[in-house]
Amino acid sequence: MILKKYFIYGFLSLAIFSCTPRQEINYMKDIESIALDNSIKNSRSTLQPGDQLIITITAKDLDVVKPFNQTYSSSSTITQYSNPSSNSLPQQIPVSGPTYSVDTDYNIVFPQVGKVSVQGENVESFRVKLAGLISQYVKDPVVDAKLINFRVSVVGEVTRPGTYVVPDGTTTIWGALGLAGDLTPFGVRQNVLVIRTVDGVITQNRIDLTSAQFINSPYYYLKQNDVIYVQPNSNREKAARVDPNTGLYISVASVLASLVIGVLALVKN
């Protein structure tokens, strides 16, 4: 009986100490004490080589703007992912339209206008710039521009690691983690790494998701091709080092222990 009690206590201790403490998975515990004064400029990504834009021009007289709208195949689509509103999987959204790519010199070639530089521009400022150029030919043109290949990657201790194309070309670190199904219980919430490449320069920053301070960080709003890495906690690392046959060994040991206890009981009787 004493040996059996030791086995029970041992399994209970293992179960208790292997659990992640509840307070470690709370987010932004001091949210109420932090002013959400993040500048709007951090939410706008400047356009980069390789970006793809769907651009359409409209006006009161649609015939006048036809030369500014290149033809395209409606079957040519790019898949984006919607941010899930609940625990459901992100939905794929096909988008299509006249598509323009930013070349290595930060230019796009637009019908009737020619090369237009996008360097230092975000989607909104570029829309205003292009409208100004077209207004030389068309009265009160309306420019609709959307970034359709805005990608972020989420890897490490998340439910669905991968690369996601985000609608409208803007998202926060919360949006990206939502697409990836949130962190697993083994993810370190106090040390999430964001890797960013802008104009060929690679930077990185570590974020504490349990503090609201990071909302004021320039890494709160994600940029094109950002990579989020969630490192595993010590419990996951220990589990990775454990022999995959450990469970089998424990089962065999338990069976042997039960047999020993049974034999001892018979001997005593």
Results as ranks from 00 to 15, higher is better:
S254M: 12
P49V: 12
R236A: 15
S74Q: 15
T163V: 11
T56C: 04
P232G: 15
Q48M: 15
V116A: 13
Y6A: 11
I25R: 15
D37C: 03
Q52I: 04
K115V: 03
V198E: 13
G169Y: 00
I57Y: 00
T71A: 14
D37S: 13
D168H: 06
F7R: 14
V165G: 00
S234A: 12
E32H: 08
M28C: 04
V155L: 15
N191D: 15
S135C: 10
V255H: 05
N69Y: 00
S251V: 08
Y72T: 05
N245I: 05
N191S: 14
I195P: 04
S217Q: 07
R236Y: 07
K60V: 04
I16C: 09
I202N: 12
S18M: 14
P67M: 06
Q190G: 06
K66I: 01
G162I: 05
V192R: 03
L179K: 04
E237A: 08
N83F: 03
S251T: 12
S117P: 02
L53W: 01
V95R: 00
P232K: 10
T159F: 07
S234P: 00
P84Y: 04
N38C: 06
Y137R: 14
S88G: 02
G181S: 09
K4H: 03
K223A: 06
K5F: 04
K60Q: 14
L12H: 04
E32C: 00
D243H: 10
S258C: 13
S39M: 09
F68D: 03
G50C: 12
F214T: 03
G132D: 12
D63G: 13
K41D: 12
Q91H: 08
D243E: 13
V154A: 10
N235L: 13
V188M: 11
Q91N: 13
V142N: 12
S39C: 04
V165C: 09
P21D: 08
A59D: 02
T56L: 05
D30L: 09
K66C: 03
